[in-house]
């Protein structure tokens, strides 16, 4: 069986600094993994390299058996990757509806799939508002919806809880679990909030200085140990 996503000996540089060092991991269909670590440990760099916003120095990225190491971002989306960036990066001057429609470029239909408004009713209420006028939590929901309308096999989420209030964080976790069951995608999420990842991840990887230093499944995860890594 081919993995949904396979990363081999990935090295990514940010200018001269070697940020991601020889990373290897495999993600099975419908599996979800959390990559945790403090700021500056390379999580965002790794995820940006996965979607093609940063070039890879060496190593390979394989998505559903297809090597996409040097593909353009939009080709990776066509190959089946969805991406929710840190800070959400909603198109500020497009309406909520237009933000979603812009992401449906690769799908054949122009009708927004029903799951979007079922799971995020607030987006339906706000569909004619500009993306830039939404609150942070609403923008996060929009960013997730926008990444899912292209029907990805692997969804990449970069610190989705950053700057979001706790009640909305729980809602987002619930929505993600629901969507995952309905749409059958695999999930890679980078996070610092353990409470959130405990609700959605099957497997945990800790990243320190560009390398994975700890790995465990949810059942036998050592939360104290993860906490120790997350705090200085």
């Amino acid at each position: 069986m081919t993995a949904a996503l396979k990363i081999d000996n990935l090295n990514v540089f940010y200018g001269d600094s070697h940020v991601v060092r020889d990373i290897n991991f495999e993600l099975q269909d419908r599996e979800s993994i959390a990559i945790m670590g403090r700021n500056g440990m390379g999580k965002t760099t790794l995820l940006k390299a996965l979607i093609g916003l940063l070039p890879v120095r060496s190593g390979s990225v394989t998505l559903g058996g297809q090597v996409i190491t040097s593909a353009e971002s939009h080709e990776r989306v066509i190959a089946g990757m969805g991406y929710v960036p840190q800070g959400r990066e909603i198109f500020p001057y497009l309406t909520v509806r237009e933000n979603i429609l812009a992401a449906m470029q690769i799908s054949k239909t122009r009708t927004i799939p029903p799951f979007v408004y079922d799971v995020f009713p607030v987006l339906e209420e706000m569909q004619t508002r500009r993306g830039g006028n939404l609150s942070g939590g609403q923008q996060q929901q929009l960013a997730i919806a926008r990444a899912l309308v292209s029907n990805p096999k692997v969804l990449v989420l970069d610190e989705p809880t950053e700057g979001i209030q706790p009640s909305i964080i729980r809602e987002i976790a619930k929505a993600l679990n629901h969507l995952k069951a309905e749409l059958n995608f695999a999930l890679v999420v980078s996070e610092q909030v353990l409470g959130f990842t405990m609700e959605i991840a099957d497997r945990f990887l800790i990243m320190e200085k560009g390398e994975f230093v700890y790995e465990d499944n949810r059942e036998d995860v050592d939360t104290d140990k993860i906490h120790a890594y997350l705090t200085i």
Partner: peptide, 25 residues
């Protein structure tokens, strides 16, 4: 128009447009 929407998306955030599947070049 759809093309107009893509233009507005790309001009607002070039990198992110690619990451949602728009051939921004």
């Amino acid at each position: 128009t759809r093309r107009g929407l893509l233009i507005r998306a790309v001009t607002q955030n070039r990198g992110m447009s690619g990451a949602i599947g728009i051939n921004q070049k």
